[in-house]
Structure formats: C-alpha cells, structure tokens
Simulated scan of single mutants.
Amino acid sequence: MKRYWQWILALGALLTFAGWHTTTAHAEGVGYTVSAKLPKNQDDKNVTYFALRVKPNQQEKLGVVISNQSKKSATFQYGVNQAITNNNGVIDYSNSNPKLDSSLKVGIKDVFR
C-alpha cells in the first residue's frame, strides 16, 4: 500500500511540474482593417458587406476604408478577386485568376470593371 501512495505522489508531482512549463502563443494581427463604405441603396444596413439593390445596367461606385492599425507607415494595394473554396472548404480570395467552376453564371470580374 505504501508503494501505491509513492506512485500516486510521483505522478501528481510530474503532472504539476509539467503544467508549469506551458507555452502561450500570441497571434499578431495583420496591422490593418478594411471596411465597406455602404451606399444609400444598401439593401441591408445591418451587414458590413455590399448587398445592393440595383437595376440592370445601373452603375455604382463602391468604396472601402483601409485603416492602418500599426505604428508604421504602410502602402496598400487593393483589387477584386473571385471567391473560391480551397481544398479545406475555406473561402479563399488570394488567387487573382482562379480556375472557376463551369456552373458559375456571373463571376466577380463580370460585375466589376
């Protein structure tokens, strides 16, 4: 019975000391935020993306606000890319010329000039 308690005490000490040596990871942000400047014909004012009510052939100027959150000066390039789903099922905007599914009737490049 004494041997049993020694094992329990040793295991408890091992778990206690192992718990003290944990590493905490801190994620760094990208340093900027992007938000849409919603026009008057925004269909739903409660969302933060463009959901516009437009007529056929109507043109609309859209704007975004890029806010630099870092302490350093920065230059930003922007553009419009087609959203695709990557192999993990995650929405991906990083490819400027992705292979599009044949069922896509209207792509983002058909809407923006």
Rank of each mutant, 00 (worst) to 15 (best):
A51S: 12
A25V: 15
L38A: 08
A36H: 02
A74R: 15
H21F: 08
A27G: 02
S96K: 14
A10W: 03
N86S: 05
A36W: 02
A25Y: 12
D43W: 00
S67D: 10
A27I: 10
S102T: 09
Q82W: 02
T22L: 04
G107Y: 08
T16R: 01
N46A: 13
N46I: 01
G19K: 05
A27Y: 12
I8E: 04
L104H: 03
E28H: 02
Y78P: 03
S35G: 05
N57V: 08
G63L: 06
F50I: 04
K99C: 01
I66N: 08
T24D: 04
V47R: 14
K72E: 13
D110L: 11
N87S: 15
W5C: 06
S35Y: 00
L14C: 15
E60P: 00
N88I: 01
D92S: 06
P56Y: 11
T16K: 01
K45T: 14
S96I: 05
I84K: 05
T22S: 05
K55A: 14
Q59L: 08
T16Y: 14
A74I: 04
K2Q: 11
L11M: 13
N68T: 04
N41W: 00
V80A: 04
F112P: 06
L62V: 12
V34A: 05
L52K: 07
N97C: 02
T75G: 08
Q59R: 12
N46G: 11
A25F: 14
N81P: 08
Y32D: 03
A74H: 11
L9M: 11
D101P: 06
A25P: 01
D101Y: 01
N86R: 05
T48W: 09
L14I: 15
I84E: 08
N97T: 13
Y78G: 13
N97W: 03
Q77V: 09
K99G: 02
D44G: 04
Y4L: 13
F76L: 09
D44I: 05
L52S: 05
L62G: 07
V64L: 13
Q82M: 07
V30F: 06
Y93H: 06
N68D: 06
Q59P: 00
Q69K: 15
Y4K: 09
K72F: 10
M1W: 09
P98V: 05
Y93W: 09
K45N: 14
Q6P: 00
K37M: 10
T22R: 03
T23N: 07
N95R: 12
K105L: 13
V30W: 02
T16E: 02
S73T: 14
T48D: 14
K61I: 11
F17S: 13
K45Q: 13
D110W: 08
G107F: 07
K105I: 11
T85I: 13
A27M: 10
G31I: 06
W20Q: 03
D101G: 09
Q6T: 04
A10V: 15
S103P: 02
G31M: 01
V54G: 02
Y93R: 00
